[in-house]
């Protein structure tokens, strides 16, 4: 019980010290996401520069399966909705629902990753390896980086759920879920941009 007492003080301390009104954790997460924008900015620029440079192997228009990727994009976007539901449940201190929505979000994210694995395998069979052309290298780098981000997100979601379940969370529970949510939404928004630029705009 001593632990709970100190945690409450800890949370109260937040409001006391913060000059901006935002908690330290949230401010740090926003800064990190700002930095991530530039990371994806660099990768997207590289892709945009190289997407037409195909010396070997298939051309973008020959292999993209827009209906398939649209479906998996839809799945990922829906996971943002379930994430919002998880955050509101956490704010209402409803652990059971929080965990339920976190699990569903993680499953949707995992489905997206599954789709990406399937897509990569298919592309590979059709002759688009990582080193086939400048287009393929930059395509796999960009979407791969995004896939890693989603995977890390899935791990974060599942870990958060496990930690909440065992009541081992250190810090403000609703805020932890919200921070994971911020990251998750960011990854989704980046995908909207990537999907548009890669799949929808013809090179």
């Amino acid at each position: 019980m001593a632990e709970t007492a100190t945690h409450t003080d800890h949370a109260a301390d937040h409001g006391h010290h913060s000059s901006t009104g935002l908690s330290n954790n949230k401010l740090a997460m926003w800064l990190f996401l700002g930095s991530e924008c530039l990371l994806f900015g660099g990768l997207i620029s590289t892709y945009m520069l190289y997407r037409g440079r195909v010396q070997n192997g298939p051309h973008p228009s020959q292999i993209y399966d827009i209906p398939f990727t649209s479906v998996s994009s839809f799945v990922l976007l829906m996971s943002s909705l379930t994430m919002v539901l998880a955050v509101t449940s956490a704010q209402r201190d409803d652990d059971a629902r929080t965990n339920l929505w976190l699990t569903i979000t993680a499953l949707l994210g995992a489905t997206f990753i599954g789709g990406q694995v399937y897509e990569f395998t298919t592309f590979y069979r059709e002759g688009l390896g990582f080193t086939t052309s400048l287009f393929s290298s930059s395509f796999y780098s960009l979407t791969g980086f995004h896939g890693v981000h989603v995977s890390v997100g899935v791990i974060m979601l599942l870990s958060t759920m496990g930690i909440i379940k065992r009541n081992k969370i250190t810090g403000n529970k609703a805020e932890v879920v919200e921070l994971v949510g911020l990251y998750w939404h960011f990854v989704d928004i980046v995908w909207i941009i990537i999907f548009t630029l890669i799949y929808l705009i013809p090179s």
């Binding site: 530039l38 990371l39 660099g42 190289y50 440079r53 400048l134 290298s137 930059s138 780098s141």
Partner: peptide, 27 residues
Amino acid sequence: PVITVALVLLMFQRSYGATFFDVSQGA
């Protein structure tokens, strides 16, 4: 993050065979 991208691309080229900066491949 911008130099991180550059470093990662160079790493992919040097260690994993990508051609981001290989002019003969049109880079």
